[in-house]
C-alpha cells in the first residue's frame, strides 16, 4: 500500500477555524495560508527562514511560517497580519508604521508587524535578548525595557531591503514608550 502523503489539517486563523481536508504533508503553514486560504498577507521572501517576511504568530508566538509543516501544526491558532486590526480600527503598530513610514515596498511589512507584536510580548514576559544586560537576571520575569538597541536586536530576523529600519524602530518605540 502506498504510504499516505496527505492528511486533514485544521488551522484556526485569525479566530476562524479552517479544515483542509487533504493537505499535502509538504505544505507549509505559509503555503496553506497563501495558496489554500487566500490569506496572502504573510509573504514568501526566501522560503528558508532567512528573511522573516513570512512571520506569523503561532499559538501566540512569532515564527517563520515557511518552515512550519502545516500537518505538524494541526489544531494551532495562527494570527496573520490580516488579523491584527480590530475591524476598521488598525492595531497601534499598524498606525505607527503608517505615521512613521515604516515601510516602502511593503513586502516585509506583514512580517515586521507580526514580529513586532510577538517581540513586544516576549520582552513583556521578561525574555532576554543577547543585548540584555546579564544583571537583569536578578529579576527574572520582569519586563525587559525596549531600548532602541533591544528593538533592533530582537527585530533582526526581519530583513527590509528598502532600508526602513530606522522608521520601523521609531514606530515600535511609539507603541512601547
Amino acid at each position: 500500500m502506498e504510504p499516505q502523503t496527505s492528511s486533514a489539517v485544521t488551522l484556526s486563523v485569525n479566530g476562524v477555524r479552517h479544515r483542509l481536508r487533504d493537505l499535502d504533508h509538504r505544505t507549509t503553514v505559509l503555503d496553506a495560508l497563501r495558496e489554500h486560504l487566500g490569506l496572502t498577507g504573510a509573504k514568501k521572501g526566501c522560503d528558508h527562514a532567512q528573511c522573516g517576511a513570512c512571520t506569523v504568530l503561532v499559538d501566540g508566538r512569532r515564527a517563520n511560517s515557511c518552515l512550519l509543516l502545516a500537518v505538524a501544526y494541526d489544531g494551532a491558532e495562527v494570527t496573520t497580519v490580516e488579523g491584527l486590526a480590530d475591524g476598521d480600527a488598525l492595531h497601534p503598530l499598524q498606525e505607527a508604521f503608517l505615521v512613521r513610514d515604516g515601510f516602502q515596498c511593503g513586502y516585509c511589512t506583514p512580517g515586521q508587524l507580526c514580529s513586532a507584536v510577538g517581540m513586544i510580548a516576549e520582552a513583556g514576559e521578561g525574555a532576554p535578548s543577547v543585548v540584555t544586560p546579564v544583571a537583569g537576571a536578578a529579576s527574572p520575569g520582569a519586563p525587559v525595557p525596549l531600548s532602541p538597541d533591544e528593538i533592533r536586536e530582537r527585530m533582526s530576523g526581519n530583513l527590509c531591503r528598502c532600508g526602513a529600519y530606522g522608521n520601523i524602530v521609531a514606530a515600535i518605540e511609539d507603541v512601547t514608550r
Binding site: L39, G41, V81, E82, F103, G106, L113
Partner: peptide, 22 residues
C-alpha cells in the same frame, strides 16, 4: 501625507504579482 496605499500594505491586503490566482 501618509502613503496612499499604506493601509493596504499594513493590513496585508495589497496584492503582489504572485497573489492573483485565476
Amino acid at each position: 501625507p501618509v502613503r496612499l496605499e499604506g493601509r493596504e500594505k499594513v493590513t496585508g491586503t495589497a496584492r503582489y504579482a504572485a497573489e492573483h490566482t485565476p
